[in-house]
Design a protein around this nucleic acid. Structure first.
Lengths: 298, 298
DNA sequence: CAGATTTGTGTAGCAAAACTTCGTTTTGAG
DNA sequence: CTCAAAACGAAGTTTTGCTACACAAATCTG
């Protein structure tokens, strides 16, 4: 329902939902989207080689009440960019093409995340975090990058935390936890087996464990108190690592802001001063040195 | 020119380019964009409280030939989301609202990067990287995260590299370089003064230095062989750190893919096998263990 | 300050657009 | 081959976008 319009058209084509004439319309639209949304009904029908009612029937089958609605949906899809499935990078592409594809891909994936994000799960995690004494982020590999990023971000909002990216250190960290602590495990695949013992140890100590993974059915999900599913577009195996980091970083941003706000509402921290603190921090105004010496926090 | 349509409208309003009636139209559009792009000319004029020609004149002043064009532009802007300037997170926002804002912000910023990215500079960097014996990524703080990410990504494409995030280690690393090496310095502000001596040392040893910063006029830019400007939207001080990481990570993706491709074209690496290698890697098929034991590379 | 000129706004009309109806053609199962 | 159902298009109806023109307001000029 809330999916990229181009994908919807593609799906309708493949599912055989469309008749011959309607299929011609859909194919034309996919081949020349810019043209399709700017042409008038009569010209579009002529360009496709069908009659006007056929074009309208096609639009209706694609879920648009009117041609206007179709154009609006199409314009939105074009603005976001071709989803990854249609944007594979061909050998021999220029640097400009590669850049366009990577950014189109990133944008459309974040758009996808925006449509599918589970706010309920997010709320449960924020609630846990807001009540925690300290936060612990775990991750290996690229997910380790995300864990470290979280560890850099949360303190800015007044929340002390720890990041561990080494399996042994994670296990040690797990042993030190209590029921006042919350662990966030980043694992894109959700199949990082080395995490399992640490998660179990953490929970045995009473700590709450949140797993951030691309699928709610991942093995690690079963061990968690809350699973935060970060969906990525289908058929994107090659690019998955590219986007999963970015999506996870956005999750970190959301969690940090929301948690800080909830803690602030409880009386400890004012959003206003938090923002000012961040600005000072990133502007380097807190340090007595010149602008040239400010740390690279941003 | 290639800017978010909502920003354009805002700019026209503030610059006083619009007459009284046109201003009413613009304000209505900003207040109710979804309605504005779906209403017919007559109904829109009625809703705003002006005549039809006034609405059309407003559209023309905003750079649209027709009302259709206006609707298409508006739909594109809506699909990408409100740009950061208009999407400040208010205290008391729900988690869902925060998530929507953060993701809208990330999407619109990546869209902005997509519009403004300097392909020429990108090409120069890729050329340097493709000819390098080894790559060295430097960064402190959040930029250190990016450096580490790059260090994880390039080897996947067959390019050995090093990441340093400690100023002292960076200086040591700089002393070890030769003319066959390329350094990429991540510094969002471009004012990380501790980098300066290291950059100078690297260049004294003949290494090429690329600086990735949000502004081409940054102090560090003067010391670099090539500057890669990663623009972020104006008036977004509070969120800048949020987006700069993500934008920089996209740059890393672009550079790694483009560099790998150029190296492959030189005879060393086939894109096809590269892709397969990545899939194997992320699927865990290279390791003899079960799926449960695959490393978290993705 | 009066007149002239520019700028802004709305009314009215028209061509083109979107949409509907209905009859014809095509398709496919028996 | 028969017949029913689905697909399609011609023609007509209604709505829409757009323009020409006239009036009003603001601004400039002598």
């Amino acid at each position: 329902m809330a999916t990229h319009f181009v994908i919807r058209i593609q799906a309708a084509l493949e599912a055989g939902e469309l008749s011959r004439g309607e299929r011609l319309v859909a194919q034309f639209v996919l081949a020349a989207p810019e043209e399709a949304m700017r042409l008038s009904l009569a010209r579009l029908a002529e360009a496709v080689g069908v009659s006007e009612p056929t074009v309208l029937r096609c639009c209706r089958k694609l879920g648009c009440d009117s041609l206007q609605e179709f154009r609006i949906k199409m314009a939105g899809a074009e603005a976001i960019g071709l989803p990854a499935t249609h944007a594979e990078i061909q050998p021999g592409s220029s640097v400009g093409e590669i850049a366009a594809r990577v950014l189109d891909f990133s944008v459309s994936n974040l758009d996808n995340l925006r449509r599918q994000i589970d706010v309920g799960a997010l709320e449960r995690v924020v609630k846990l975090m807001a009540g925690a004494r300290s936060l612990h982020f775990w991750g290996n590999g690229a997910s380790g990058i995300v864990a470290r990023d979280a560890q850099q971000k949360f303190p800015l909002f007044g929340i002390p935390c720890v990041a561990e990216t080494d399996s042994h250190q994670i296990l040690i960290n797990a042993a030190s936890l209590s029921s006042a602590d919350v662990v966030v495990v980043f694992s894109n695949t959700g199949r990082n087996a080395t995490m399992k013992p640490s998660i179990d140890a953490a929970r045995a100590n009473g700590a709450a464990v949140v797993v951030v993974a691309s699928s709610a059915e991942a093995p690690l999900a079963r061990s968690a108190d809350v699973v935060l599913c970060v969906p990525t577009l289908d058929n994107t195996d090659i690019y998955t690592p590219t986007i999963s980091r970015i999506a996870a970083l956005c999750i970190v941003d959301i969690l940090s802001i929301a948690t800080a706000q909830m803690r602030g509402a409880a009386g400890a921290l004012k959003i206003k001063s938090m923002k000012e603190a961040i600005i000072r921090n990133f502007r380097g105004e807190t340090s007595p040195g010149t602008e040239e010496t400010n740390p690279e926090n941003s």
